[in-house]
Design a binder for these strands. Sequence first.
DNA 1: GGGAAAAATTGATCTAGGTCAATGGATATT
DNA 2: AATATCCATTGACCTAGATCAATTTTTCCC
Lengths: 189, 189
Amino acid sequence: MHLKLHQNILQHIKMTEEEMILFDSYWTERVLQKGEYLLRNGELSITDNYVVSGALKAFYINPTRGTEEILFFAIEDWWATDLLSFNKQKPSNYTIQALETTHIIQIHRQAFQDMLASLPQLERYFRIILESYLGSLQRRIIVQNTMAAEERYHDFIAHYPLIAQKVPQYLIASYLGISPEFISRIKNK
Amino acid sequence: MHLKLHQNILQHIKMTEEEMILFDSYWTERVLQKGEYLLRNGELSITDNYVVSGALKAFYINPTRGTEEILFFAIEDWWATDLLSFNKQKPSNYTIQALETTHIIQIHRQAFQDMLASLPQLERYFRIILESYLGSLQRRIIVQNTMAAEERYHDFIAHYPLIAQKVPQYLIASYLGISPEFISRIKNK
DNA sequence: GGGAAAAATTGATCTAGGTCAATGGATATT
DNA sequence: AATATCCATTGACCTAGATCAATTTTTCCC
């Protein structure tokens, strides 16, 4: 019973209880300890992952500067997958790592195909998820291009209060493309 | 015969000639004159649009500053649609306008549904397109967060030489989140 | 082809936010 | 509980890139 994911799906499409039971059979639970990797830069992503609880970070490693650049955070009810790598079986461009003990449920590539074949109404759900994510990326680009660092920080806190709570400030700084010191200064006002 | 789109589709999935003839029946051609709007901020997007030739810009209007912030350009073989608006029938957040005489082919919402029902293998094509776009947005966020203005400009020229050719510099500046003056200075080196 | 409008360039000046280094708190590990 | 590591804060200084204003160049249009 992957209740949290059921609820998420039912917000977008209709599924009967029997269908949900079939659905569950394709997925497995997994627990990641703090610091454990879900996916590493250069590997092929073979699972699609849904976060039930905890927190993950996804980051690029900047080869020249040697720094980690946060691409996104994933907390409960978010997906944490490199879709390009998962679908096209190309090496992943980024790394996904647990920030704390994290419960996820995951599905392997082949099981994912089988599931969509047996429950085709899920195509729609996954397209909706993709589009929502796409919309949020577009919004983020505009925010980055048009808002000052301080505005961006406040915007982040307002939009993602749960993430702001559990993620250290220097990672939020990286996500926002500003320095950790500057976030300190913003807060002291 | 929407040849350019056929070629694009055949790069990703298989379709027979008969299927392509059926495919074509759902689409209509349209020509936009320079300055003409394909979609305006606040409207519902009722068509999905594929650019055959010409160039379009998509931009947010920054309400406080009153400026246009470029979200993307679309030239030949690109899609130019507000997907969130098209699929969820929500008011669009941005405006799409022709930068020069532009030939597009478009499909209405209902026709799009009908087409997917009659040619279900297209689901895959559109998912691939969506994912590619997602990858490019993720890349753009990293570039914006980690590269200096000058690097970003060179990166843009290297990745999108065709766009750089036909789009005025001050719009590229907006896309990159830098000032037009600074691009001038970059070029004089 | 000539005038107007739009775009690009250049110079001068200013500032948001970075960098570096030192210090101080928290957290975690034994 | 003590120590080590990680993270946040603070101050001093610096620079990438913005802004503003004045030309110059290009493009458009009758």
